[in-house]
Structure formats: C-alpha cells, structure tokens
Design a binder for these strands. Sequence first.
DNA 1: TTTAAATCCGCAACCGATTGCAAAAAAATA
DNA 2: TATTTTTTTGCAATCGGTTGCGGATTTAAA
Lengths: 334, 334
Amino acid sequence: MTGMKKKGEVTIYDISRALNISASTVSRGLNNSPQVRKELRKKIMHTAQEMGYQHNKFAANLRQKRTRTLGVIIPRIDSHFMSTVISGMEKVANNSGYQLLISQSEESAALEEANIQALFNSRVDGLLVSLSYETKTKDAFANILRKDIPLVFFDRVFDCGNCVSVVIDNYRAGYEATQHLVDQGCRKIVHVAGSLNRNVYNDRYRGYRQALMDNSMNFDDKMLIITDLGDGSGVSIINHLLNNGTMPDGIFTANDNSAVSLICELKRKGFRVPDDIAMVGFNDDPVSRIVEPNLTTVRYPGRAIGEVAASTMIRILEGTQYEKVNSIILSHEL
Amino acid sequence: MTGMKKKGEVTIYDISRALNISASTVSRGLNNSPQVRKELRKKIMHTAQEMGYQHNKFAANLRQKRTRTLGVIIPRIDSHFMSTVISGMEKVANNSGYQLLISQSEESAALEEANIQALFNSRVDGLLVSLSYETKTKDAFANILRKDIPLVFFDRVFDCGNCVSVVIDNYRAGYEATQHLVDQGCRKIVHVAGSLNRNVYNDRYRGYRQALMDNSMNFDDKMLIITDLGDGSGVSIINHLLNNGTMPDGIFTANDNSAVSLICELKRKGFRVPDDIAMVGFNDDPVSRIVEPNLTTVRYPGRAIGEVAASTMIRILEGTQYEKVNSIILSHEL
DNA sequence: TTTAAATCCGCAACCGATTGCAAAAAAATA
DNA sequence: TATTTTTTTGCAATCGGTTGCGGATTTAAA
C-alpha cells in the first residue's frame, strides 16, 4: 500500500538471542532497571548499540497506554505571537522527553473540532489549546473531558472547571493601555477589538470601559469597533471612523498588526501620529519597534506563556502538580 | 508511575462481543472494507459510535509499521519565514491525514542530531529538515538514510543523492538583488551573509559575486561580512564598516531582520537610506513593508515551500511520486 | 553446614488492531 | 437437487516492548 517496505528492524528479541538471555532482561536492561546487574546492563546497551537497535515507541505506548506526546491546537502558527508560544512549548516539552503534535484550526470551529478528534485518536497524553475565533461552546471537548485527558488553555481560553488557563491579565492590561492614552491627554478614545466571545478581547474591552469610566469619560457604541484584526483592517476602520464623523484623538487596538495598519493608513490620510491621534497596540510584535513613530504596545510574553503552559501540563501528567490551579496569570507591561 | 489511570477503553473486541461477530470483521467494517457487507458495516460503525469507541493508532501502527506522521526539524519556529513554512506544511499534511512532529535545533548541530534520533525512534514515516547554522556533515542522517526513510530538505539543504531539496534559486536571487543595486547607481556594494556552509547564504553570495563581475566591479574581502543575521547585527556591522573606512553606497543583506537592523542603525548614524546607502534585503518579512523607507526585498515564498515540501514527501510515501527528482526550485521575485 | 534474605532473571500474558488463510454461507450455474 | 462460484466471516498469528510473579542463584546470617 505504501510502496515502501521497511528494512528488518532489530528488536529486543534479536538482542536477547545474541546474548542468550531473555527479552525481559533486555527490556529491563535498556531501561536501566536496577533489577539487572550493572555489568549486564552495560553489555546489553552496548550490544543494542552495536546491532543498530531502535526502540519501538508504538509497542511501548501500546503497552503503557501513554505516548509522551502533547497535542497543540492553535488558530494559526504563522503569527509572531503564536510561533513564539510554540517555540517555548516545544523547548520545554523536548527537555522533558515529550513531543508536540501541532495543528491549526485556522480560526474555524469545525476544523478545531476535527483536530481535537484527530489528536484524541492519536492518544495524546494532554491537550494544549488556544481557541479559534469562531468557537462558541465546549462541546467539542466532551470526549477529552470525559476521559480525563488533561486540558490546558492558553491565551484564548475557556472558563472551565477541570482545566487550567494560562493568560495575562487582559483586563488590567486594557485598563492600563487606556489610562496611558488618557494620561497623554486623549479625551476621545476608540477601541478596536476582536470577537468579544474570546476572553482576550472581552477582557481588554472591559478594562478599556472601566478606565473610561474611572476618568469620567463617556462611551458610546460607535467607539467600539470589532474586526478580524487582520493586516488590512486599517483602511476600513479609518474609513468607517471618517464616515461616522467620530474621529478620535486616541486609539487602543487589540493587536499590533491592526495598529501598524492603522498607523500607515492614518499617515496616508494626513493625520499625524501621535500628535493628532495617539495609539496603543497589543502583542509586542517586532513591527511595533520598527514602525515610525514607535508604537506603544503591551508586552505580551509569548515564550513564557508557552513554557508555563507546557510545564504545567507536564507536571499534571507526572503527578507533581499538587495544588489545584485554575488559572495562571503572567505579568505584562506597557 | 504517571499517577493517572486511563479509563477502560472501548476496543474492537468489545464491539465484536456486543454484535456477536469477530473482531476481524469489526476491524474490516471500521475500515470500510468491501469484504464486509454494507449493512453490517453500517451497524458496526453505528455501534462503535454508540459505545464511544476510539481507534487506537498505536496498535495499528505497530502492526502496519507506519505512523502517518512526518518529522520536521527546523532551526527555530519563531521567525516569520519558518512559521509560514510550517503553516503550509501542516495544512497539506493535515489534509492528507498526516500529522507533524516538529522540533527545533536552535541552530545547534548537537540538538539537531538528538532531534533526528528522537524522531527516528518515533518512527516517523518521513523527515523534513532545514539545517542548523552549525551543521557540517550529514553523519547524523546515517540512520535515516540506511533505513530508507524519505528525507526532504527545504530552504537550508544538503546536496544529497537520495533525497529531495525544495529551494528557491538563491544564486539568481542574489544576482538580481545585486544587479538591482547596480541599476540604482551603486558602485560599491557590501554583502552581509550568514554561514557560507549553508547553501542559501553561499548561493546568494555567489550570485552577488557574479553580478559584480558582470558589471566589471571589483570585490575584496572587506566587502563580505559574515554574521549571525540576528536582530541586533546592525550595530556591529556598521561599526565594523566605519572602522574599516569602507563605507559602501549599497548593501545587499541575506535576510530582512539584519536589513531592518541596519537601516535603523544607519539612520541613527545620520546616513540617509537609500540616498547615501541603498539596501536590498531578503525574506519578505512583514517588517520590510513597514520600515521606512520601504525596503526592497526578495520575495521568499515560505508557505509554498512548506506546501511543496510536504506534498512531495507525501507523494513519495504513497508511491505516487514517479519521476526521480533531486531538487524543486520555486520562483522568487524582487 | 543450614537457613534466611537478597538479588537476579525468565516465563508467559498482555496491550489492540491487522491480515493471510480457510471455512461457512449465500448466490449462481448446471 | 447437486455443483461451482462468489461473498462473508472467523481463527489465529503477528507486530515488539512491558511487567507480575515465581523460580534460580548468590550472599549473609545463624
């Protein structure tokens, strides 16, 4: 069927035959079990090496009912933030002898569900998820939860009894970002957000609202713009604002892509940034340091989020996570 | 040992008992084999669904000696280019029912070798690799090659008899980039490169040399600067050039990170870009479109590279790749 | 030397799906 | 109805480590 036949693999049985001992001893020897005397252990390993033996994970997995594999589902991997998260995760996992099975939901709830299913079938020991833009319910996770497969959400999370969330305090970050604009003298601040179904955007939005309120600034619906936050979102947002005649003197936007896009478009339209319109972004994309004028942005610790999510998961799996945590909040900074 | 016991899994034996048929028929039924009559097939699937059956890939893998898993080794995942490549790969793989096992070499030959070994042990059906900065020999791939595990290199490749390479024509791209600078009136062009052990940098360098030669411009060693191309490389490069008194009027640099870094540093030192010094980058990072002045850059089709690499691998595995190819060259553009 | 305690090792069952082979059942032909 | 052909189904072996349990061997204690 594959058109490709495997070469004869060397098994522990071959080794046992070569050394004239039993396969169980070989297995124990290779696993460095104290049940096999040191000398013999060495001989086994040496012979294994010599014969080109390769451990077969499937046989082991089948028997042990675990895979040392973590499933990861993210919207997309090709964003600065996500690839940084994954990088941190991969490193931690690798150091602990785990491997990552990564799949992309492409912001689609259906694909997300298919991926959950596929990873479930692959018998991942645990699942690390950042939700798609579309996802509304946790139905898709029913199988996972039913079988007590540990579930860790990061960044875009669900509030969920039996699982852990790794996030930053988006509410506070949103508050601080808005306050920063107020401190700069802005009196009319627009917020550009993503889907309010996602905690990250909802929390930032709530922080923004609270900051306005605490500064006795009023808010109306026209000051909240919900978009996909894509690279090209700037044009339509600015047009929208111009048409509404509600040009603000400050914009707090929920990621850096859209911030950059907005800045470019504003400049094209003749506005000066930050003199006419001040701007705060979110995510600490490298672009934010390059674009002129430099963009104020909320530092989003992607690598740390990945590392913490992975190490938490591993502690849960190894049974060394004693306290029952529901969410882990990492620090951010402007 | 894990502290976590699995719930009793439903197996084909449970189903066979429930339906009073043999496990082999259940297996065939679940695989939609025509050997089982349609009606029964449906009943089997239905019962499986109902009982919450989950296919166990390990048992299947163990028996079939294949995993439908592709190993991927890259220097780092947290760069725009690489994450785009991976994104394309993942999508293609997923569509064909394959999964990706991704690991990072962090530019270290030792870690790369460890990853090869780990993926080998995981019995990946094929291996997709972009080499680390350090790698010098193909020794680490000996096991892979010996067992005829298909090997596809992309971007940073080895010239290797039995495997495929997916690349762009870096030589021509280097030539064109240099020629572009010449056309802009540059008479003294410096090239900033990565390790010349890597084809990508070597080829670009050779293209650069050839372009100089074809324009009767001379070259001396001081005009080639080899660096790690990191985000912070600009400062030291400019200092180096200033100290040498060899300030050029054009720079062709082998990636966009360093280009941006260079531009920033040049501006800080009071040079005007591109009036005093023109610049061409490489990789088509989003930053290249944001930085001012806009950076001329070679469009590097990351997603396409990932897609082509993955689909080629899958064709090889499925035995539908008939022609014997050694390298696939994708097009680029300025 | 005998007995008790440790240490080492192997037997054989097990994990769960796949598949060659052959028997059984059903359908087609004589 | 008997025979051949075709379609369905089941038996049992297989993939390769892992591990509980008991037996064998060695060492220590009596």
